[in-house]
Amino acid sequence: MYGDGEGRVQALNGIDLDIRRGQMTAIMGPSGSGKSTLMHVLAGLDGATSGSVLLDGTEITGLDDDARTLLRRREIGFVFQAFNLVPTLDVMGNILLPFELDGTKPTAERLTWIESLLTNLGLQSLRGRRPYELSGGQQQRVAIARALAMKPTLIFADEPTGALDSRTGREVLELLTQATREYQQSVILVTHDPVAASYADRVVFIADGRIAHDVPRSDAQTLSSLILSFEPKA
């Protein structure tokens, strides 16, 4: 339940969802279906009036702001539609930002990991560049590297291809898929684009705050017809 008082809106209702480790799970649904609210609640950004969210066995609903902040810093990574890099920092600075906020120095082992990320994501030659000197696709690769750098339990990708042309968008989706395959990274992809969702291992449809369908990997065609089935019959 979300909101209270007169403007009370029940954005989510009776959702029972298990996100599997090392998989990419897509959450799809029309605008206003509750998929954004679901992501906010899952990421500990928003509370729920009832129910609970467990992250790796730890209850995250009801945590105070400081605890949720710490959780976001260490256990959760974010990739968004607007690339959301810090303009005052260069590529390397952006990738190391979560460590800076944590007040910790990355260990030698972690630095090796970050170096390998830079190589895999094709960012080696761009490490000193500022965000405004990068293309949209390059900025999104930096955002992915930043999310992966902390080795979080879960990465949320909110319409990560929304602001990219389709070829660059495909590259970004392939990188995210690769992260699940090679690093056993769990990813939640929130999107309304059936092509993007077709890269996921599993697709969950939300409509009117409920889970309407829960299907394994499907092609964009199948996903499209599932979406269309939500439209009221003419």
Binding site: D65, T69, L70, R74, F78, V86, L97, L101
Partner: peptide, 15 residues
């Protein structure tokens, strides 16, 4: 906008 991003990435309002 940038403040919100820092908060999302795990900066406390205090810091």
């Amino acid at each position: 906008q940038r403040t919100a991003l820092f908060r999302l990435l795990g900066a406390t309002a205090k810091s």
